[in-house]
């Protein structure tokens, strides 16, 4: 009888650690080490959705608005970096690593540099603001965001007189953002605001919702919220903020310029070429519910209409 003694290299397929487990482990070790080295105040690991944010100041923004359920806000998302289906982001962003996270401040500023997430946020007071959120697809939510005014952050880095626009950029990492494995959009996702829009008190850099850290599907760890514009302007998972002289390119505008303009202010009078923007479906109202009339500037005309005085909003859509 022949006795076979296996060599160590003759390991069977089944005994090899599956690649995804191996990769996860590597990510975990890398993330832990990096987080430790940077002395992050928060524990390492996955995007800790559900972690309470401390010291939130309440504001009067959105008092009286009926908030969309947490479950709906975190399960119905357009975030193509994690897939194009509405539930794809919630499914695919569960283990999205956001610690450590850095944001690069670039361009026409006196104090450029790469800033750690905690250092970006720490000097500011977290505020809760309840904002209407209107998607270009004609649905809407009301979200209690937690964040810091964008204007306060911008002032810290001291933009020069050449800073006419602010450009934002989302992370590119197809391993962590599996939707980026296909060129559905021109990655990285980029967005931009005119400087006066960015300095408007309504513009928020959100780091949480419902008093908790942002879940991955909602743009963890830091995203823009500009409630008077269609949702796609509120860029998620930001890794770069760039101050520029010329109007920066924006992703959906590059994808279909006749449908998505740079401004993309919510406007019931200006239709999307393929559908009306006059009404919106309010998320969470159930199967038998009427649509609601969309408000100009999503109901924030008082705060922002003056930014566009004299502009033809049908031309500058």
């Amino acid at each position: 009888m022949q006795i076979k003694i296996k060599k160590a290299s003759h390991i069977s397929e089944a005994e090899v650690t599956p690649k995804h487990l191996f990769m996860n482990r590597r990510h975990f070790i890398q993330a832990s080490a990096a987080a430790g080295a940077l002395g992050s105040i928060l524990p390492p690991g996955k995007a800790a959705a559900g972690m309470k944010l401390p010291g939130i100041t309440q504001t009067a923004y959105g008092n009286g608005l009926e908030q969309t359920k947490y479950e709906d806000v975190t399960s119905y998302n357009n975030f193509y970096e994690f897939g194009t289906g509405k539930s794809d982001p919630a499914n695919n962003a569960q283990n999205f690593q956001t610690k450590p996270w850095q944001v690069s401040i670039e361009g026409a500023v006196a104090k450029p540099g790469v800033v750690d997430f905690d250092d970006l946020i720490k000097p500011h007071k977290l505020e809760e603001r309840i904002y209407r959120f209107r998607c270009v697809e004609a649905w809407s939510m009301v979200v209690p965001w937690v964040g810091i005014p964008l204007a306060d952050v911008i002032k810290r880095f001291e933009p020069t007189s050449k800073a006419k626009y602010v450009a934002f950029e989302t992370l590119v990492d197809p391993e962590r953002m599996p939707g980026q494995k296909r060129a559905i959009l021109n990655w990285p996702y980029v967005e931009g605001l005119r400087m006066d829009e960015a300095m408007n008190p309504l513009a928020l850099l959100a780091v949480g919702l419902y008093g908790e850290e942002l879940p991955g599907q909602n743009g963890a760890p830091i995203r823009l919220v500009v409630p008077w514009k269609y949702g796609f302007k509120s860029i998620k998972s930001i890794v770069a903020i760039r101050f520029v002289e010329k109007m920066p390119p924006t992703t959906w505008n590059m994808s279909a310029s006749s449908e998505y303009g740079f401004y993309s202010n919510v406007n019931p009078e200006v239709s999307h070429p393929r559908w009306s923007q006059a009404k919106e479906r309010v998320i969470g109202q159930g199967y038998f519910s009427a649509k609601k009339e969309t408000l100009k500037f999503n109901g924030y005309a008082e705060e922002v209409a003056s930014l566009y005085s004299g502009m033809d909003l049908a031309k500058y859509y």
Partner: peptide, 16 residues
């Protein structure tokens, strides 16, 4: 899905 499982999601009109 509509009656028993209840997973038509946040926008059931669109899902259906």
């Amino acid at each position: 899905r509509a009656i028993v499982i209840g997973d038509l999601g946040a926008n059931p009109v669109e899902t259906v």
